[in-house]
Design a protein around this nucleic acid. Structure first.
Lengths: 185, 185
DNA sequence: TGGGTCATGTAACCTGTTACATGATTAG
DNA sequence: CTAATCATGTAACAGGTTACATGACCCA
């Protein structure tokens, strides 16, 4: 459940081609949802068959032809159904490969683990800064959407990324300290 | 990439049946990896075909027969390969449905969102307490494993869950405050 | 007599990943 | 000249989910 609903959500802002969706995902949603181009096209196909979107072919001269997708009423109500269905239990049962690797790491190479943790922390710092940058650009988009409350929700989504990154960095520091202490003994 | 490696990791502690693996997942790894029984059996099958494990059928009278799985040398080296391969980039490109829902929630029902956030926070508190409980039982298992460093790594895995839950709760509080402020205006 | 534990799975499905393929225009 | 941008996808695979199926023993 979800790339499809992300697509529906974006098409609510306006009709788009698969290519444009791909870019919006890359520019704005990549922070919490990484979408493959191949999957976008496949899912567009699927949701068109389900009747959630319709498409219109536009023939162009200079550029390749394109296919513009528009949400239908069914699509809108499916989107709202998804949006209002709350399922935090599902969110809780997450999978995290890094935690699993940590769990088993007594058997592994400690040098590599330390390197990995350090890299992970620096990626999180980078991520944190990028998100802060994006937060600042929100105001810029604010007057382009109908609903004036939109930016508030975007900000809360971004905040989740910030809290998360912060937690990851703290965790790495705590781990590095423990690993260091243990090396001294 | 991963339930298979989790299974290999557990079989390193000792040979087990699919049923026992299922219980260990449920008791100890469920905090960072939720495994379906059906998938455990299917993956055991797959990794047996790959030569990472072998199985031995044990006929029992009072109870149903069982199939005990043991890691092979290939399995052990595949496990180590996975353990030492570090890929924090992959860990970064995560997907989070709750963030996506938040992002689009200007279009949704605010009451339901608040309810969901409150439930999410309480689930995280519960989770936090459960993890603390588990952390305390680590000492108990400590002398059952060969490598005395094992518990340190378990503790770090658990810590990740704790930091995470803490971050989630803080995020919910920040969001509830923002939503409250906005309602007052 | 009903529910829990022991113990095994199959089948269909959904979602995401990887690798590949095409081909024109435009800006540096 | 070459790299980026525009614009479309297909095929095969890997990993996880849902729903179902079987059957005996033991304890309250």
């Amino acid at each position: 459940m979800s790339l499809k609903h992300g697509i529906l959500g974006l098409l609510n802002y306006g009709s788009m081609t698969g290519y444009e969706l791909m870019k919006v995902f890359e520019d704005s949603l990549v922070f919490f949802w990484k979408a493959q181009t191949s999957q976008i096209y496949r899912d567009l196909d699927t949701i068109e068959k389900k009747g959630w979107v319709t498409s219109e072919m536009v023939i162009q001269q200079d550029k390749p032809n394109k296919k513009i997708f528009t949400v239908t009423e069914e699509g809108k109500s499916e989107f709202l159904r998804w949006l209002n269905e709350h399922s935090p239990h599902k969110t809780m049962q997450y999978r995290d490969e890094l935690t699993m690797r940590m769990y088993f790491s007594a058997a592994g190479d400690k040098e590599k683990l330390v390197e990995e943790l350090e890299l992970y922390a620096s990626l999180n710092k980078e991520f944190y800064c990028r998100l802060e940058g994006i937060e600042k650009t929100i105001a810029h988009y604010a007057d382009k959407v109908e609903n004036p409350q939109e930016p508030l929700y975007w900000r809360m989504a971004i905040m989740r990324g910030l809290f998360n990154a912060e937690g990851n960095i703290k965790w790495v520091n705590a781990c590095l300290k423990l690993l260091e202490d243990e090396r001294v003994l």
